[in-house]
Design a protein around this nucleic acid. Structure first.
Lengths: 244, 244
DNA sequence: CAGTGGTCTAGACCACGGA
DNA sequence: CCGTGGTCTAGACCACTGA
């Protein structure tokens, strides 16, 4: 299937919501009428609606309908902690100019400490990148990426200075399927003070990321140190069934 | 239905994963065999698996199987940015003692600025709480909660000093269904310096939260200022269909 | 090739909300 | 009461993986 039917209706409804055709707190058409209008089964409609809900666009209410809970100005001006998006993609979405300086690229071996923190197999060969990312010309993020050599044998300087993920997807055919992120705050170190524009503050926001490729291999571990000014992550949550 | 079938199999598999019966990078039984074993249809099995994937427990791979990607020690020692969980619940889960001091409780009216930031209706009457939360005896979080009076007419001091959410759910029958969180870093202000244990740093982690109840009313806006030491949020992401 | 997950259907019954 | 969303089924066909 080129594009699944539920993706089409997901996109159609999302676009409608983002354009304001379905404003904040209004209701979407009912599942039955959507199924009829799009000529698909109700199950497929429900699948699209589930994705919309998981992204914070709508909230379904039994007996009432499907309400729009998306607010344009709040939910489109931040990085996504939920969602897999490269900095280059986020920059395009937010209208921010992203530049990247490759500071270091080297081969290494995953030691016990790194293996424990990252889930990468101990003793494996890995490629480490250190990159400084500039947002609208201001040094904002210090990225340290570690890739399994087995999955990512090398990364050309040019790719490292534009988008690593575009290179992985388009050249190597490696896609990130799942990713786990951890956000904390740490005292700034000498390197941060040297490179980042901290606006006089003494902390950085740290985002660690653990990624799995489409073959289920944990192949990437990244630590990003963010200047406070540009640390801004958004996430949506729904009550889960069977929550402990 | 008391508990849905998919909730039961979700819980069963999650427990199995958390107990190590299905270790990191192992495979679950196939969808067909799960359907047979639990005596339910494959669609229902898939629904349970989808929730497991959304919580970062598993990753399905076409033609191969369903792989476990959950690592106990990494994913159970942090607050959840994905997921709706009160601080009291998180404390129990993490084995942290949570104490709360109510600093202020007052009625207010939602002005234009607050309405713009929070999504609460301008002019509405609201109840504002300011609370200091202590984790294992150390002042760690300054919470500012704003509730629509229409939904939450009042909160007894006792409830404010234990868990507001338990009070909302059990006494008022108000459940949070969807919630949007925004995490940033800000310079510490005088109040933070006065109350919080900042470990000598000059920043706080700020989490803003916008919540909708089961009737679809945006009824709560919360700003939490976290001491850096205890700011630690985890989030999992999957590649979405139709990602921009 | 057999077995896996991915998509989709048509229909059923239930619980809930509002008129 | 009717219309809404919530759950569940049985079965179909597809695309992909690995032996």
């Amino acid at each position: 299937m080129a594009t699944a039917k539920y993706e089409e209706i997901y996109s159609a409804l999302r676009t409608g919501i983002e354009r304001g055709e379905y404003p904040f707190l209004s209701f979407l058409p009912s599942e039955n009428s959507l199924a009829h209008d799009f000529g698909i089964s109700r199950n497929t409609v429900r699948k699209a609606l589930q994705y919309l809900a998981s992204q914070g666009y709508v909230q379904a209410m039994q007996g009432r309908g499907i309400q729009v809970i998306f607010r344009q100005h709040h939910q489109t001006s931040h990085f996504l902690l939920t969602g897999i998006e490269s900095l280059a993609e986020a920059g395009r979405r937010l209208g921010i100019e992203v530049r990247t300086r490759l500071l270091e690229s080297s081969m290494m071996t995953v030691d016990a400490d790194l293996a424990g923190r990252s889930g990468l197999p101990e003793g494996a060969s890995a490629l480490a990148l250190t990159r400084l990312r500039l947002l609208d010309g201001r040094p904002a993020i210090m990225d340290r990426n570690i890739f399994l050599t087995e999955v990512v044998p090398q990364i050309p300087t040019k790719a490292a200075e534009s988008s690593v993920y575009a290179y992985l997807e388009n050249r190597l055919g490696v896609g990130i399927v799942s990713s786990c992120r951890l956000a904390t705050i740490e005292p700034a170190d000498e390197e941060d003070l040297q490179y980042l524009d901290l606006s006089g503050l003494d902390c950085v926001g740290v985002v660690e990321s653990f990624s799995f490729d489409s073959a289920g291999v944990p192949f990437e571990y990244t630590r990003s140190r963010h200047a406070p000014r540009t640390f801004s992550f958004i996430s949506t949550a729904q009550r889960l069934p069977a929550q402990r």
